[in-house]
Amino acid sequence: MSKRNRSIAGTIFDAANIIFLTACALAAVLPFVYVVAGSFASDAELTSRAVFFIPESLTLDAYKFIFSTDTIMQSIGVSVYVTVIGTAVNLFFTVTMAYALARRGLWGRNFVLNLVIFSMLFGGGMIPTYLVVRGLHLLDSLWSLMLPGAISAFNLIIVKNFFQEIPKEIEDAGRIDGCTELGLLGRIVLPLSMPVLATFTLFYAVGHWNDFFGALLYINDPQKWPLQVMLRQIVLLSQAAAGDMNSMDPSFVAPPDQSIKMAVIVVGTIPILCVYPFLQKHFAKGVLLGSVKG
């Protein structure tokens, strides 16, 4: 890699590039730093200081509040389970279908692709989908959070497109070695597609992690609520308060402290960010593809 042009222009470019990217990274992360700092600050400090990155007095009250009962821990368990199993389901359904659709000569391929594209734009909506899930007896089952979204048409098309880009020569070589289609997929196409698979693992996993609506619709048992339902509840509570009839309640609870809302974001973000480093090493593996090609 280091063999590339080390001209003066190149050096200037590199320096400018690094400065620019550092600025981007800071712009992305500073508001989050404020959120993290806020989660450790007192309500009083958050109210009086506009924006800050280091709280004057550290307090763990917000986190103590969030983790005061087992509900949140339990919901984290649910979220992790749904994210792990759900992503596996996603990958299985997406990869198999994308691989079949990547083959240009397949009879009926365009028809199926049209069905997929159509379904991306047209849908039955909330209630008809709910009735299907109920018909399958999936209500209150965690499968209701994984099966109805098993394939994202968007992701499917992009994965299919990546598969299509794999040079035919490589697959042909596999066939000569006596691979069946399944063997080809397993031994040649997937290993070559690690960056793509890592990407869509991340997309699907984040999708599951951030999903709350499915759980609201399909899960009646509060013990099975995923983390996002809890977090949304805390974040939106103050939003709903003003002008809402519910604030007329004698039992109305005052909106949670700003710091709790911020702690909630931290709790909801950090675990999924931790997934990324594990996937990252796969992002470089596709280099193989190029070298085989050459």
């Binding site: 198999t96 079949a100 008809p128």
Partner: peptide, 18 residues
């Protein structure tokens, strides 16, 4: 290989299409 995906689209996308 196409079958699971097809079933998925039929069931969760086209059945609710009404």
């Amino acid at each position: 290989l196409l079958l699971p995906g097809l079933l998925y689209f039929a069931l969760f996308k086209y059945v609710p299409m009404w």
